[in-house]
Computed example of a mutant assay.
Amino acid sequence: MDRPATERKQLDSAELGVMAHLYRGEVYRSTIWRTRLDTTTNWSVVTLGVALSITYSSPQASPLPLVLVGILIIFFLMLEARRYRYFNVWRARCRWIELHFVAPLLRDGDLHLDQHWQDRLADDYLHPRYHVSMWTAVGRRIRRNYFWILLIQTAAYMGKLMVHPTSVSSVGELLERAAIGPIPGWFVLLAGGSYCLSWGLIAIASARIDANRARKRQDPLGMG
């Protein structure tokens, strides 16, 4: 249902002051959650570094830590995606205020309240919600950071199997080294390949969803 085009009074100095403080608050919250995103990525890098140190400490060291660290990386990725969804709420509000409040105020001094951009912002405060899905957030974090973490993990694991304790001489020997207890090596490598492929597919699907949203978006750099 279209909102009636009613006249809206211009903001007075007190209301402009409230908007300024509101913008400062949203920038602060956006900054805090952006810092939390960096923290989660740092955790992933540190745990992978520890696993690399243990695995390559000696030729006889097991490659198992590089497999187990993958579980932690998944946990950190999901946690970071959740934090990204929160961050995106504050980022979108900041960008919306910049686009419709700060920029018009600096350009011509007219806030164009007749366009009812403030109604959309008010609705977001009255009915807060995430602007992106969990899987979209996961895909974005993989594309930004975790692709390289997963690539290093995979390359380090395969390198360990191929060079320690001696250079691998056959596929059978590679499968034997990849075995974990009663779990055959072919199954371990198949699971690892599926692990990497699944995150890659999520990243590609997320990129296509983002591209479609960008083409359909009516407001440039708008909410969400």
Results as ranks from 00 to 15, higher is better:
D2L: 10
Q10S: 14
L11M: 11
D12K: 06
A14T: 13
A14P: 00
V18S: 08
M19R: 08
A20Y: 11
H21A: 12
Y23R: 13
R24M: 04
R34K: 15
R34N: 14
D38N: 14
T40V: 09
N42D: 12
W43I: 08
W43N: 13
W43P: 00
A51H: 04
T55E: 04
S58C: 06
P59T: 08
A61K: 02
P63D: 14
L66N: 02
V67H: 08
V67E: 10
G70Y: 01
F75P: 00
F75W: 11
L79H: 09
E80W: 03
A81F: 09
R83F: 11
R83H: 08
Y84V: 04
R85G: 06
R85H: 05
F87L: 05
F87P: 07
V89Q: 10
E98D: 14
F101K: 02
F101T: 01
L105V: 00
L105W: 03
L106Q: 15
D114R: 11
Q115F: 03
H116Q: 11
W117E: 10
R120L: 03
D123R: 15
Y125C: 02
R129Y: 08
V132K: 07
I142H: 06
W148C: 02
L150G: 06
Y157E: 05
Y157T: 03
K160S: 07
V163W: 06
V163L: 10
V168R: 02
S170R: 01
S170V: 00
S170W: 03
G172C: 05
L175F: 00
A178L: 09
I183V: 08
A191G: 07
S194N: 06
G200P: 02
R208E: 15
R213W: 02
R213N: 13
R215W: 02
R215C: 04
K216F: 04
D219I: 13
M223R: 10
